[in-house]
Design a protein around this nucleic acid. Structure first.
Lengths: 134, 134
DNA sequence: ATAAAGGTTCCTGTTACTGGAAGGTCAAGG
DNA sequence: CCTTGACCTTCCAGTAACAGGAACCTTTAT
């Protein structure tokens, strides 16, 4: 299977597939013309990776998950640990963004947004030491 | 004012301040020893930047905000537009992460997480075309 | 004299790709 | 046979916003 077809089936851009080869995720054979030739197994792996990445797992996570996937004797607790760690990262990020959102929303609400120059948003940014908001 | 003191007052690491000089945010003078010498105005700008960055504004946003800040004739609507755009980005990101979280939480909940190898998480990742979840 | 604490520049690495240049290969059409 | 277009190849640069570290100079205190 050529890289274009693999891209189509896996949902990954060809560029990304080449990159995944570079970092050791797959090792396709080569035809006499130098073209990559992916077997079913490689395609399967790439699909796995596409799904894992779409869930936000890092490349390192993917490495771990893939190796667990291929280890028939793995413990599901190991997989769960990776996923839980990722879940914690996501929760932390959401919390952080919600904090930003609340501050920003407040500032935006207070800015009249017209032709005049006075603006609570800039005032907040410029307020060095003083207490902010309420 | 030396860079170390500016770092202290602005809350930015010295490394970051040098970087901000490199990308044109500040242009401190130099003492005879080659040390940077920041005036009050530069320190103020850096504090402004620290606050803006801590609210998640990109460097490009900061460039725009800083220039609006220094333009006494700005329209507050221009500032508001930058902030609203940023707010939309944040909301989109939160929505995306919440989607991931819900999928991941469901998978994690279904994985018993013991010594046995069977694992709904890996099953999901490996499920190429088939319907997922519910 | 020396050592610690600051400062300087310059180079590399981070994440996970993406865009683009320069060039070989293959199938179809005239 | 030639060309056109769609593939494929490798390699290099760029992204965001810094952080780490090497090699070296300056200042201050002991």
């Amino acid at each position: 299977m050529n890289i274009g077809d693999v891209a189509e089936t896996s949902g990954l851009p060809a560029k990304t597939i080449r990159y995944y080869e570079e970092i050791g995720f797959v090792r396709p054979e080569r035809g006499p013309n130098g073209y990559r030739d992916f077997g079913e197994n490689e395609v399967h792996k790439l699909t796995f990776l596409a799904r894992a990445r779409s869930l936000g797992f890092t490349i390192d996570d993917c490495r771990a998950l893939l190796s667990l996937y291929e280890d028939r004797g793995r413990a599901s607790s190991d997989v769960k640990a990776v996923a839980e760690h990722h879940l914690r990262r996501i929760n932390a990020k959401i919390a952080e963004l919600e904090g930003l959102r609340s501050t920003l929303a407040r500032l935006v609400a207070r800015c009249h947004g017209d032709d005049r120059p006075d603006c609570p948003i800039l005032d907040d940014l410029a307020a060095s030491g003083r207490r902010r908001g309420t």
